[in-house]
Design a protein around this nucleic acid. Structure first.
Lengths: 196, 196
DNA sequence: GTTAGCATGTAAGGAGTTACATGATTTT
DNA sequence: AAAATCATGTAACTCCTTACATGCTAAC
């Protein structure tokens, strides 16, 4: 119940408001459209988060344009402050487990446009090795107990392994693309020894 | 912090102990090998859960065989009681959102062997329509904003859609298999009108 | 004999949901 | 004028994690 309403949601909010000012209700819709395949936030977490960000000076209420003689005084449109932009950059620079775990990877990836190339690469590689650890653990366990398992359990394992393997291949492609792009930008550096 | 340490973990524990008695440490390893692709439990949730199940009479400490003159008095092996078996059946019979949401579907599926055929079918269909709702929502939102999105966001959406579509296809196959199997078991019933 | 892994547990807290409560505005 | 949807917010609660605390036992 303290102020730190979750780094993931905080990043998602700051990142969205960096593109354009928004009010809470629509912000939630945007987030759930953007991340709908991975997670969904509720108002019960979004509004307290906005309140906390406002109190910390990372966002501010945008004054409605005075030419609009609107009587409708209900929407509260928030925009990013200078401190908010700094905080966003800080969050986007962190390349650690908090960036590549299941709950947070999607959000970090969604704002890769604002992330430095080196950080992007480290996050993608971090996620990949996280998934490979998981594959190793499950495959090892499976090799020891496969014949004792019923068909539903086996099918679940098979499907789970396949999904994670697919994500690893996807990451491989992204990593290769990133490496090619950064090699093009600085062609003076040697790229043959940058593996692993 | 009350007694109800989560229906998902409760189901996972009861289901595992139904196969064979186990002590906490190994139970956790089994669960994380079984469900490692979807989620992982920590000791901090497992031991309180065992304590709660013990207090509710759903599991019991298994007495070590008296022929073993083992001085090793440390492992606490739990086994399912009659009430525990009833509770497990009750949990496995529930075909509702609590069975097909992301956090719980894998656990329910893992114990499908002990689930009635009709319940299995309803859970698979429930999961499928849950995923299809999600696809609709994201696709609609995407159609309205696709040209404004940067390449990373688009790639994330593309990958997310593809993953969910793959799971839907997987579910379609499973549902078809289930229908075929139940048609074989009761050939007197008509199966042509059971489609949506 | 000391590191590594087995084994059990607890207290505090983090991150978010659900359900509730309220009111304005648009659509039918 | 009723129903739907937009819009904001809070309190209580759920479920799980992290970090800590402890001791045993097997391997090197």
């Amino acid at each position: 119940m303290a102020g730190g309403q979750g780094r993931v949601l905080e990043l998602a909010v700051l990142g969205s408001l960096h593109e354009t000012p928004l009010h809470g209700y629509e912000l939630r819709k945007r987030l759930n459209a953007l991340l709908g395949m991975f997670r969904a936030f509720s108002y019960g977490s979004l509004y307290p988060c906005l309140r906390s960000l406002l109190a910390r000076g990372l966002i501010a209420e945008e004054q409605p344009a005075p030419n609009a003689i609107v009587g409708g005084r209900s929407k509260i449109v928030y925009k990013l402050t200078a401190e908010g932009k700094e905080r966003l950059q800080e969050l986007l620079t962190q390349a650690g487990p908090s960036a590549w775990e299941d709950e947070s990877f999607g959000v970090h990836f969604a704002f890769f446009r604002h992330t430095e190339a080196e950080v992007r690469l480290r996050i993608l590689e971090g996620r990949r090795s996280r998934l490979e650890e998981r594959l190793d653990a499950v495959r090892t366990a499976l090799a020891r107990t496969a014949e004792r398992l019923d068909s539903y359990t086996l099918e679940l394992q098979r499907h789970g392994l396949e999904s994670v393997e697919r994500e690893v291949r996807w990451l491989n492609e992204l990593i290769a693309t990133e490496r090619r792009a950064s090699a093009e930008e600085r062609p003076e550096r040697d790229t043959t020894s940058t593996d692993e």
